[in-house]
Amino acid sequence: MTTTTPPADPSRAYQEFVKGIWKENPAFVQVLGMCPTLAVTNSAINALAMGSATMVVLMCSSLLISLIGRFVPNQVRISTYVVVIATLVTVVDFTLQALAPAVHKELGAFLALIVVNCLILGRAEAFAAKNPPGLAVLDALGMGIGFTFALSCLGMLREVLGNGSLFGFDLFGPSFEPWVVMVLPPGGFLVLGVILLLFSVFGTRKAS
């Protein structure tokens, strides 16, 4: 794709938007951005906050990188992207600290670690730099929603299993024996592993 691409037709734009949500879901299919996927999904609220923060950074970075992409010399492009992303993450970090201090404290260092989320750099390099701003933002929005969706699924599953609650509300009452390991680190690996296993089972069944 060159920079002379005419304004995208609606069907292409729709396609770029939808692919990130399910078919190329960043967390479940491409398995990108694992650190936040596993580290902050011990409760549904944390997962949702992390997903939204990543989505905001991803959309802004895709827009900016798509705008400046053609002016950046090839040798320094990765460093440029990283500096752009780091600036945006700083903005989001301080914004969240002002608006929702409790969530900010929960997420802690992992919010700043959005800088090194491979998903964001990956979209910048693979899509935003080569496509017009409109498509880049749509792509980022789709990927962001897909990522938030995946994180929320994991977060809800782990919170229900490990704590017997959802978004902080008790679900089962006192007779429920929580499966504590699910909110602890090993649970992250196990739940994502089982989900990927299901994907692979259904994938092979569909193929045969």
Binding site: V31, V181, L184, P185, P186, G187, G188, F189, L190, L192, G193, V194, L196, L197, F199, S200, V201, T204
Partner: peptide
């Protein structure tokens, strides 16, 4: 089994390893 091989298997391995480290 072939269906388990790949990322899912590695994640489950890592989960067991993490449990050991607990």
């Amino acid at each position: 089994p072939a269906v388990v091989r790949g990322t899912a298997f590695n994640l489950l391995l890592a989960g067991i390893l993490a449990m050991a480290f607990m």
